[in-house]
Structures are given as structure tokens and as C-alpha cells.
Amino acid sequence: MSSNDYETSDTHSTTTDTAESASESTDSTDQLELAAQVELLTEENHRLRQEFVQARQSRYRSTAVGLAAIGIVAALGGLLFPDTRDVLVALGATGLFGAVLTYYLMPSQFIAADVGERVYTAAMTNLASISDELGLRENRVYVPGETVPARLFVPQHAEYSIPDDRSGPIVVDDDSRGLFLEATGAELFREFERALTGEVGTEPAVIASQLTDGLVEQFELAQSADADIDVANGRATIAITGSAFGSLDRFDHPIPSFLAVGFAAGLDRPVTLEVAAGDDRADWLVTCRWSSETETEAA
């Protein structure tokens, strides 16, 4: 072998080593850049969450300040205008009391919707798997209860009756075999009742108006909710847009569950639930159906 061959071999080896070193250096640089980007995004996400919490808290503080200002002005007006003193003093006391409540009841922590959805998804995926394994049907029946607003009954057969024993969770009676579960919407409905001024309605149109307001204004689970009521046929269809918890066609989703529980509790009769994809006017259509009082008594 000539000296030129040795030189060529050495040159090739050196070139290969240099290329490998350059590749390793590039990979290391890329990893460092990715790590830096992840760290930057994490910090930015934390900053945005903090700003969101501060913005929400600022709204509560502004409301408290506004109520306090109204209370002070009304109280001073009571001193200046003796003829209307009683009314103004009462208004002032109400404003100051509302300001104190708003300030001290201001939430100190907000849970992001995506976190709540992940928790719900894990739990409901397990329940849906159990339901499938038991060979249960797609029927979802929300039954009013004595100690809870309503519970969810998932029957095994197409022809079924509402269980007499409602302790659940597994019902083994021949004509009502299935699962009898705590509904996701039950606790939401309890919270809704506590915040409601007055009683829950007993007429479908009133119930629908209250529930849709609760979804959008109180819980902020949807951007909009519009109800279409057919009292004669025992049907209420609610068009939902902008769900905060993703797809509504999953097992006992909070939004349809809350609506079905609300109708079951308000009408005091079982309600069947259907969820379908919407059209260009809404993302989802949630339909609650119930039987008339005559049909319920006959059954």
C-alpha cells in the first residue's frame, strides 16, 4: 500500500470523525434549544394563568368597590334628605353589606376547564367501559330521587321499568336490570339551586330558561344555550354552542347531565336523554324527553 493510500485513509477517517462530532454538536444544540423553548413556554403558561386569576379577582374587587360606593353615597344621602332617609339608609346598608360579601367571598383559585375535562374524561371512560362490558344499552334515563335531585339509570334491555330499589349501583331485577348511578349533573344542580333566586320551575319552559341561564351565566360551561320546547310531546331540545368540556356525546357529560337532572327534578318524573351533533347554528343538540302525567300514572 502506498503512502498516498495511507493519507487518503487518514483523511477519510478524520472527515468522518469531524462529521460525527458536528452531528453530535448539532443534536446537543437542538436539545438545548428545545429545553429552553419548553422552559420558556412553561413560564409563559404560568404567567398567563396568573394574569387570568388576577383579572377574575379584579372583577370581583371592582364589583365590591362599586357596591361600597353606592352604599356610602346612599348613606350620605340619608343624612342630607330626611324625607327619604329610611329608604336611602336601607339602600346604603344593602350596598355596604353586598360589598363586604363580594370581597370576602371572592375566589382565590380558578381551575382551568381543560383540567376539569381531563378529570371527567378519565372517570367517565371507566364507567363507559363497564357499561359496554355489561352489555348495557345506550339509553340514558334520569330518575328523580328523594335524597338527590336525580340519578342516572342505564338499562340492559330495550323494554325496561324504572327500578323500585334505587340504592344502586347495580340493579339485578329482571325487568329493570342495569346500572343506577350518581349523575354528574346532580351536584351541579344542587349548586345551581343554592344560587337560584326563588324556586326551580315546574313548567318545562320555565325550567329550560333557568337551566340554560345556569349553564351559561353561572357555571360558564357553554357560550350559548337556546331551548326549543314542545310541551305537547314532552320534549325540550337545547342547542349548545361552545362547550367548555369538549364533546357532549360522552357518558354522562356534565352539560347534558345537568339539563336532564334539572328537568327530572323540576317535572318530578323520569327524563330520557339524547345527544346529537348540531348543524351550522349550534355545536350540539341535547334533547330531554318525558312522559305526560297521564302516561306516568298509567305506567
Rank of each mutant, 00 (worst) to 15 (best):
A276C: 04
N4M: 15
G168V: 05
D268W: 10
D279F: 14
S28C: 10
S2P: 14
Q218C: 00
D283C: 03
V100C: 11
L267Y: 09
E133R: 00
V143F: 03
E159P: 05
C288A: 11
S23L: 15
E39I: 14
G246C: 07
R177C: 06
F263Y: 14
A208C: 06
E220W: 03
V89A: 10
T18L: 12
D249P: 07
E159H: 10
T26A: 14
P204G: 11
P144E: 05
P155H: 02
A158M: 13
L179C: 02
F52M: 14
L134K: 10
A205G: 00
V216N: 05
D268Y: 07
A74F: 12
A276I: 05
L221V: 04
L211H: 02
I170Q: 09
L127Q: 01
D252L: 04
T15W: 00
A227Q: 12
Y104R: 00
P155V: 04
D114T: 03
S292A: 03
I70G: 13
H157D: 13
S2Q: 06
S23F: 02
R190E: 13
I255V: 13
R177Y: 05
R47S: 10
H157G: 05
Q109C: 12
T102Q: 10
D17I: 09
L285H: 08
A298R: 10
V171N: 02
T18F: 14
F245Y: 11
